[in-house]
Amino acid sequence: MPDPETPEDGIDPRNRLEALDRAVKAALDKRAADQAAADAREARAKQAQAGGAAWRMISNLVLATVLVAAAGYGLDRLFGTTPLGLVSGVFIGFAAGVWMAYQASARLQASQDPPAAGLAPVAKEEEGTDGDLR
């Protein structure tokens, strides 16, 4: 036979508010922890993306120099203009590599800045806060 003083969930009515508070606090804490974990994951993903982009820039730089120099060397062999093609190939290839890196950096910046500004309107006044090479 149920005691009329104690409700079905077995909690003293005087303590109910406290129990509710605890439950709410626990839920809020959990949500904050989840949010922090998600933020950390996103930050890691962004970092990985930037690292990948940096690695592509460097490999592009080297590959552009090597490939264009090789093409210049091939032209030299074809037309007998040794060493013009090789030398100009190294410099033109290098210039192309730097240009690609510059473009990639600009793209990276464009792809990463707008969402950051959209998520946190407070950060808008410090636009361009983030370095280009994140």
């Binding site: 490999s59 090597v66 490939l67 264009v68 033109i92 590599g97 240009w99 690609m100």
Partner: peptide
């Protein structure tokens, strides 16, 4: 100059893809 650089970086794309 930009045109030449862009053209070259376009032309070496198959090479960079392949070598990487």
């Amino acid at each position: 100059f930009v045109f030449v650089l862009e053209l070259i970086s376009f032309l070496i794309r198959p090479g960079t893809l392949a070598v990487r």
